[in-house]
Structure formats: structure tokens, C-alpha cells
Amino acid sequence: MKYFKLIALFIRATVQVQLEYRSGTFGRAFANVLSSATTLLLLWAMFQQVSSIGGWSFDQVLVLIGIVTTIDYVVEIWLYPSLSKITTYVQRGEFDVLLVKPVPSQFLVTFRYLQVLDVLGLLVGLGIIGTGMYRTGSLEFINFALLAVFLVAGLVIIYSLYLALSTLAFWFTRIEEVASMIWLHSTAGSFPVAAYPPWARLLFTFVLPVAFVTNVPAEAATGRLSWEWGLGGLAFATLALCGATWLWSLAIRNYSSASS
């Protein structure tokens, strides 16, 4: 209960700051819509030349694009604003302030900045998913349910990856750039993993796991998900979350014992 209250407070504070910069808010919304429009234009242009990409039809890739858009916005309005501050805290030595609070530090860094004002982009993403599902004739309850489950799993993977990369800031000070590699998921993940050469498929399944982050939810939404991939996705998400949390606690222990 306390935690929900805290999240509400964090959102409130973040929204207030956002309202201060109103043209920034408009600008971001405009940019988001525009970027989705251009992405769809490019997808359409590609399918003028070919009939399928990696065995996926236009409508199936449309769902994929919708998922990438959705995840991208969640990263943009939540994970990036919150987690990118970790490096700043560490560099400026402001981390002690977080540690003395009677709330787990991982919770604080995770939820501190939730820019809910930018939900518009999220709606665009969900709209694209819906359109794709409609066009592939997969508007069924079970698909929605599976989509929800695997979208969350995908977000958990992205979150864990980002948290883990940012946690490295405790050991390497100039880590921001590494952490921003996380944005690669939106390019690489916009296409079916099957569309890449075999060596890249391995890379995009296990190193930068867009297979689980974007492909699996898209397959779930269109009723094409095999149980092996589904289980794999859930397992990967669980492992990633545990790994990142473990790394975080290790970093905190290290930090507390290093700084006197």
C-alpha cells in the first residue's frame, strides 16, 4: 500500500515538472506520432518490393511494429527517465541520499520518474497492435491474454537489461553510453528475427534478446506462438529480473562498504 502511495507521489511530482515545460510535452507527442507514421510509411514501402519479411506478412509485421512502439514509449516515459539517473547519482555522489531512505533503493530508482503525461505514444502503439490483430483476424480473448503476459515479460527483460547496464555505473563511471545501447532494441526488434542471417539470430535471441522482447509478444497476439518460445520467454524474463536484482544488491553492498 505504502508503495502504491509512493508511486502516486512520484508521478505527481514528475507531472508537475512536465507541465512546466509544456511545449516540450507537445513536441514529444508530435514527435512520437510522426515517428510512428514514418515507420509505417517505410514498412509499407518495403512491402511494395517484397511480399514477406522473414516469413512474416505485412499485417504480422504491423503487430510487431505496434509492440516495438509500445515498448519504446514505456522505455521513454518510464525506464529512461528513471534509470538513466543512476549514473548521475553515482557520479555526483548523491547516492547516499537514496540509501538512507526506508524503502528499497531499487524501488526508488525504478519508479522515481514516471512521465505519465506522455501516454499518447502508448495509445498509438496499442492502436497499431490492434489494427494488425484485426487485419490478421486474431482478435480473440486468448490472444489478448497471451499478448498481455508476454508484453509484460518483454518489458521485464528490457527493464532488467537496462538496470543491469546502469548498475555497472558503480564500477565504471562513464557508462551512460553503454546503457543507451538499449535503444538498439527498437531498430533490431522492428523485424522478425527470422529475417536476419543465422549468426545475427543468435545475437538477437540471447545477447540483445529482441526475439523475446518483441517477436514473442507479436506471435502471441497473432496466435502463432509455439509453447517452446513461450516458455523460453518467461524463463528468460525471470532469469533476467533475478540477475539484475542480484547485480543491484551486489553493487549496493559494494558501494556501502567502499564509501566511508
Binding site: 505527481r12 507531472v15 508537475q16 507541465l19 512546466e20 509544456r22
Partner: peptide, 16 residues
């Protein structure tokens, strides 16, 4: 001019 509080922020967002 900024008014205090969330509602104040909202008002100044709409009509500054």
C-alpha cells in the same frame, strides 16, 4: 506566473 500545487501546474499549463 506559476501557481503552487498540481492544480496550479495544470492551470498554468492550459493558460499560461
Amino acid at each position: 506566473q506559476k501557481e503552487p500545487g498540481l492544480m496550479g501546474s495544470l492551470r498554468s499549463f492550459v493558460r499560461r
